[in-house]
């Protein structure tokens, strides 16, 4: 009896070793989350987000695709019309007061009292947190300011901050205490290239320290550079989500062959078929076919051996941007 139990138990670790993240409780999971505004406009339409614990999740979508409304729902600011969600394993919005201390957030740009200094603004937010030790307030505020590079301007009034400094202060507010989850809405908005790099480094650092980062952006390059996972929003719907690699895989690498003479097209197509490649599109002596498992150099050799004049042979690696445009049907702002 005991032996058979052991026998059954033995394979389990091997199974669990693969998808460790899915076995874990996700940092965030929504089920059919929906927001319909009073006018009847559906801002967020039945989305089922799963943000794995420890991931850097890029929440990508064009402006107005429902990202910020989703984030507001996740933080308990806006009441969902339908659906439910768990944050850090606790059902929301019931668990908000217990869960939110572990969540650092920057929602839709920084917002602070203009006539208070940066430091005083942070002190005000810290004063609202009943789960921190007031005696460590000064130290934590200083650390947060230091971390975002605002220590020198801590005593300046917020009114006199530049847009980039305001954004940094917003990030500092999210870092007032150690967090399990950071929800950052467009964190690099208004930052210069140097500031953008710093924020990216900060996000990576936070991830290394073990925090899950949920980062919304309309900038493809930003997501590509820091995120492990991506969810794509379009017109209130979650079009796709998964790892960055999954997303890249959505568009197959293609082989483009430009023939010297369009008369060779039929021969070339038969060569590709012999190599078990999918049927190519043929147009004016240009063949386009998904590369699949085929080796470009083998294709080239076989074509030449078959007497096909190859003028150009190009491996078309899909740009992530193409994938997004295909998914959302809209163009994205591309950084720099």
């Amino acid at each position: 009896m005991t032996t058979s139990t052991a026998g059954l138990a033995a394979p389990a670790p091997a199974d669990a070793a693969g998808p460790v993240l899915s076995a874990d409780v996700p940092a965030l999971a929504t089920r059919g989350l929906t927001k319909r505004f009073r006018g009847g406009q559906v801002a967020v339409d039945h989305i089922d987000l799963v943000v794995p614990h420890g991931s850097v999740f890029g929440f990508l979508g064009p402006n107005g695709s429902g990202k910020t409304t989703t984030i507001r729902m996740l933080l308990g600011l806006v009441r969902p019309t339908a659906g439910e969600f768990d944050l850090l394993g606790r059902p929301m919005p019931r668990g908000a007061l217990d869960v939110l201390p572990g969540v650092g957030a920057l929602v839709e740009g920084p917002a602070f009292h203009p006539y208070l200094s940066g430091r005083a603004n942070l002190a005000r937010l810290d004063a609202g947190d009943r789960t921190v030790d007031a005696r460590t307030s000064r130290r934590r505020i200083d650390e947060a300011l230091e971390r975002v590079g605002l220590a020198a301007a801590a005593r300046k009034r917020y009114r006199n901050y530049s847009l980039g400094m305001r954004q940094r202060l917003g990030l500092a507010a999210a870092l007032l205490r150690p967090r399990e989850l950071l929800v950052l809405d467009e964190p690099t908005n208004g930052l210069d290239p140097q500031g953008t790099r710093e924020v990216r480094a900060l996000v990576r650092e936070l991830a290394v320290e073990g925090a899950t980062v949920f980062l919304s952006s309309h900038l493809l390059s930003e997501v590509e550079q820091v995120c492990s996972h991506v969810g794509v929003m379009s017109r209130g719907r979650l079009v796709t989500q998964g790892t960055l690699a999954d997303l890249r895989g959505l568009a197959a690498t293609r082989l483009r062959v430009v023939l010297a003479s369009s008369d060779d097209a039929a021969t070339a197509a038969s060569v590709l078929a012999r190599l078990r490649m999918a049927d190519p599109e043929v147009q004016d002596g240009v063949l386009l076919a998904p590369l699949g498992d085929a080796q470009p150099e083998v294709v080239n050799r076989e074509l030449v051996l078959a007497g096909v004049g190859v003028r150009e042979l190009v491996v078309d690696r899909p740009q992530l941007e193409d994938v997004f445009v295909a998914l959302t049907g809209e163009g994205f702002d591309v950084d720099q």
């Binding site: 009943r130 789960t131 007031a134 870092l175 399990e180 073990g210 925090a211």
Partner: peptide, 28 residues
């Protein structure tokens, strides 16, 4: 007292016993 641990321990999120009166916010 506060001089333990920097900000490096994100995973070491330990909720402190809530301060029941919460006069800090009122003062602020």
């Amino acid at each position: 007292v506060a001089g333990l641990g920097g900000s490096t321990a994100s995973s070491a999120f330990v909720p402190v016993r809530p301060n029941p009166l919460g006069f800090r916010l009122l003062r602020s």
